[in-house]
Amino acid sequence: MEVSSRRKFLVLSLSTLGALVAGVAAYPLFRYLSPQPTGGEKGRVNIPRAQVGAGQAHFFQFRGHPAVVLQSAPGVFAAFSAICTHLGCIIRWLPENGEFLCPCHAGRFAGDGKVLGGPPPKPLQAIPVALSGDNLLVG
C-alpha cells in the first residue's frame, strides 16, 4: 500500500513536471510561429491625393518608419519605404532629376525604386498603394 501510493505520487509528479517542461518548451515555439501583427486596416495610411502633385513625392510615417509616396507620371502612384537599402539613411526626392538620392553615400534610386547607382544592393522596398476617391490608401 505504501509502495503503491509512493509510486502514484512519483508518477503524478513526473507527469506534472513533464507537462510543465513541455509547456515552457512549447511557448517560445508558439510565439515564434504566430503571425506578427501587421496593423491590419489600422496600419494603413490615408493621404489626400492633392498632397502628391505630379512629379512630386510626399514623405510620411508608415508603421513607425519613414516612407514616401510618389506620383511619377500623372495618375501613376507608387509608395516605398524611404529607408536606403545600403546602410539605412533616409532618401530624398530630387524632382529635377526624377530620382531618389541618399545623402549618406549618394545611392540613387529611380521612381520605380530600382537602383540607379551607388552602393545600395537592392531596390527600395515597395508598399502597396491604391486610389480611393480623393485619397491614396497606402499599406
Binding site: 509510486r7 508518477v11 518548451a25
Partner: peptide, 27 residues
C-alpha cells in the same frame, strides 16, 4: 532564467524517474 528553471526541472524529473525505476527494481 527560464532556461535555468527548465534545466532544474529536468534534473528533478530525472531523479523522480530514477526513484520510480528503483521502486520497480526493488519489487
Amino acid at each position: 532564467l527560464w532556461g535555468g528553471a527548465v534545466v532544474a526541472l529536468l534534473v528533478i524529473w530525472g531523479i523522480l524517474a530514477w526513484l520510480l525505476h528503483r521502486s520497480y527494481m526493488d519489487d
